[in-house]
Design a protein around this nucleic acid. Structure first.
Length: 718
DNA sequence: ATGCCTATTGTGCAGAGTGCTACTG
DNA sequence: CTGCACAATAGGCAT
């Protein structure tokens, strides 16, 4: 279908003009089909088509057109923060029409009114759920919800959130669900009373195959011969001047394969490429993992997993897009994350370790990895190849290439999500009694799918009892629910009620024995913290530590036979790490002693920051003691900045974190006053303080020093 | 026969990723 | 279940 024909479907002229300005004249068949489905007239739609086949454009046309014609807001839900950022950049294009676009993820809060000024709001499901709980006034203006990757409804730990959002809004706003190909798309569409458009069409054709001992069995039946090792597939692609993406199932494998492949990739690099890569590698900070990354980078290869810091990840992604990096070995971070296609995708592993032992990776996920093959503007086709090791190649072919992806199942019954969702329904969404609760549950996909609420009712009852018992809610003589402040706040803070209960139970000990380790262990022991796991070899050391510090902890040390024992040690380890952090142990040493990666450290710190905040908020509700509150607030700041008490004044300044604050302090600038009084030239001698930083500081103080400007010029000239 | 080094076999361990607050500019 | 690190054992060689 030609873009002009959109006019006959009622699309605004301005939208059509801008699309053509982008150089798009012809819509892809599934796009056309989707737009003809009635979605432009307000009908709900589930669009199940492969990644990179133009879902976003459909969403854009529907959104913009709706806003131009009817006003109101559109909310675009994504599963990942990184994706929110990506979409924001894409949608910014429409600002030309006066459309205002905002992103809101956990990074900066905003239940607040400012979002009311925007037309398109991009959010993660959790963030939007949280906004719903805060009853943001603009929610009533939301006329359209777009759920990207709506198949994540079936994800064990995060699916329930998305399901509840859709259950809340399915009568109030138009819904457009963008999905990967799933087994039971019809069922999902039925639930949402939506039209369904399914297609396998891709703008770049995809050729799939299975590799086994030097034989590559393509899906069309043809067989290609290669040297017996699978890495020959990588070399082969490089000879064709193409890039490769290799998916593996552990971080360690990703690193190992990257270094191994590096030796074979290096000779394909041009001199300038080699120089650029070396330059990029040299700029990276030095940590154990980064050393490996640097080594690989110099050879034109990189690994990509959640242990990498944000900085490293985006450097790798960028360099791959530029074509500098020829091969990336990755864990699933890349299969679901940002869009990073390659000519050839190799899937080395089809099994993965989970909490329940080893299991086959779902068809849906493997197909998403395979979907990464083929760069729309550069390649005529993409290739996805699964490596068979012990498995029979024909089995893999049957399961992953010709097989149907799994059905989607409601994950509302997952206890942790259900607990938090029921609390929210009662405290934030005005559900007044058990009958109303059940009525609401009848709107869910869970009910649609099973037509039987008995199991869910039982669970709901248990949870309601739990909430009553622990004073999240109360109940009056007519069996009407009455939200209590503790419950309302727990729900708004987006805490697992179990976490909140743990906090509350610890208030007494907190008051009699306030100390950082005790608090950190409390945080670490909640279900909302991703505590470290303990290695066999560390067990003894950590246990010794726990005994040594027993008097500081708010919980007893369990017996070693106790199933909680290992978990407990992991929590102590996490608490110990946080203690090191606020005592200014350098990052590199923390990474080494706890044998973790940058990404893991940041994750723990981020969670600790949030939980510290939440702990304070809940403590405030309990007739708090002033000195305890002060202690907690100070500890929160120390966690946030990773510093001892004495640096807190300095870290309150912009651009001053733990490193610079320490450097300033040691150089004798111990307070803000010291800095204001100091000569700029003196400050510049301190490590980590340059002209740029100094300018920011003076700007903050509200003074401008001509001397600094002069200095800057000097430096620029150099 | 003894001591030392290397190759081979055995044993034990560990293993993906992710979101959620609110302040401020 | 698989790959890896490290330990235990066996084997080879010089003395």
């Amino acid at each position: 279908m030609r873009v002009e024909e959109l006019k006959s479907l009622g699309v605004d002229e301005r939208v059509i003009r801008l699309i053509r300005e982008r150089g798009i004249e012809e819509l892809y068949p599934p796009q056309a089909e989707a737009l003809k489905s009635g979605v432009l007239n307000g009908k709900n739609l589930i669009l199940a088509i492969p990644t990179a086949s133009g879902k976003t454009l459909v969403a854009e046309i529907v959104m913009i057109n709706k806003i131009l014609r009817e006003g109101g807001k559109a909310v675009y839900l994504v599963p990942l923060k990184a994706l929110a950022e990506e979409k924001y950049k894409e949608f910014k294009f429409w600002e030309k029409l006066g459309i205002r676009i905002a992103v809101t993820t956990g990074d900066y809060d905003s239940a607040e009114e400012w979002l009311g000024r925007y037309d398109i709001i991009i959010a993660t499901s959790e963030k939007f759920d949280s906004l719903l709980r805060h009853k943001s006034p603009w929610i009533k203006d939301v006329k359209l919800i777009i759920a990207d990757e709506v198949h994540l409804l079936g994800s064990y730990d995060r699916g329930a959130t998305l399901e509840m959002i859709l259950a809340h809004l399915r009568d109030k706003a138009q819904i457009l669900g963008l999905s990967a190909t799933i087994g039971n798309a019809e069922e999902l569409a039925e639930w949402l009373n939506a039209e369904l458009v399914v297609s396998e069409w891709r703008p770049v054709s995809l050729k799939r195959g299975v590799f086994h001992h030097g034989q590559l069995f393509w899906e069309d039946g043809s067989i290609e011969k290669f040297p017996s090792q699978w890495d020959s597939l990588v070399i082969d692609a490089l000879k064709k001047d193409k890039q490769v993406l290799v998916f593996v199932n552990t971080r360690r494998s990703a690193e190992k394969e990257a270094l191994l492949l590096g030796g074979k990739v290096q000779r394909f690099l041009s001199k300038p490429e080699e120089r650029r890569l070396k330059q990029i590698a040299d700029e990276l900070e030095s940590t154990p993992t980064n050393e490996k990354l640097k080594e690989a980078l110099k050879k034109g290869v990189a690994f990509h997993h959640a242990g990498l810091g944000r900085e490293e990840r985006s450097i790798v992604e960028e360099a791959f897009r530029e074509g500098l990096i020829k091969v990336i070995t990755a864990t699933p971070t890349l299969s679901a994350g940002v869009n990073l296609p390659a000519y050839r995708v190799i899937i080395r592993d089809t099994k993965r370790y989970s909490n329940f032992g080893w299991s086959d990776i779902p068809v849906l996920e493997i197909q998403q990895m395979m979907g990464r093959a083929g760069r729309p503007k550069y390649d005529k086709e993409g290739q996805a190849i699964i490596i068979a090791k012990t498995e029979k190649p024909e089995d893999l072919m049957k399961r992953y290439i010709f097989g149907k992806p799994e059905n989607l199942f409601s994950m509302l019954s997952n206890e942790a999500s259900f607990r938090s969702q029921i609390l929210a329904l009662i405290t934030n969404f005005g559900v007044k009694n058990f009958r109303e609760l059940i009525e609401f549950l009848e709107k869910t996909f869970y009910y649609h799918q099973r037509k039987n609420l008995e199991a869910l009712e039982g669970k709901a009852k248990d949870i309601v009892y739990f909430l009553l018992e622990n004073e999240f809610i109360d109940i009056d003589l007519n069996d009407q629910f009455m939200p209590l402040p503790f419950g309302i706040r727990t729900s708004q803070l987006y805490l697992d009620p179990l976490t909140a209960k743990k906090f509350k139970d610890a208030f007494e000990k907190l008051e009699t024995n306030p100390n950082p380790l005790g608090v950190f262990h409390l945080l670490a022991s909640t279900p909302d913290m991703a505590s470290l796991r303990i290695r066999r070899k560390e067990q003894e050391d950590i246990l010794d530590y726990a005994y040594e510090m027993e008097s500081y902890l708010y919980q007893n040390i369990p017996y070693w036979e106790d199933y909680k024992f290992e978990k407990f040690l992991g929590e102590v380890k996490t608490a110990k790490l946080l203690l090191d952090w606020i005592n200014e142990v350098p990052e590199a040493r923390i990474l080494e002693t706890y044998d973790i990666d940058t990404g893991d450290l940041y994750r723990i710190l981020e969670l600790a920051d949030w939980l510290m905040y939440s702990l304070i908020e809940l403590y405030k509700l309990s007739s708090p003691k002033k000195e305890i509150l002060e202690f907690l607030k100070q500890l929160h700041l120390r966690v946030k900045y990773g510093v001892r008490e004495e640096l807190l004044e300095l870290t309150s300044l912009p651009m001053i974190g733990r490193k610079r604050a320490r450097a300033l302090y040691n150089a004798g600038f111990k307070s803000i006053e010291d800095i204001v009084k100091a000569k700029p030239s003196e400050l510049l001698k301190v490590e980590g303080i340059g002209v740029g930083i100094l300018e920011k500081l003076y700007q903050h103080f509200g003074v401008e020093l001509p001397k600094v400007k002069a200095k800057k010029k000097q430096e620029e000239e150099r």
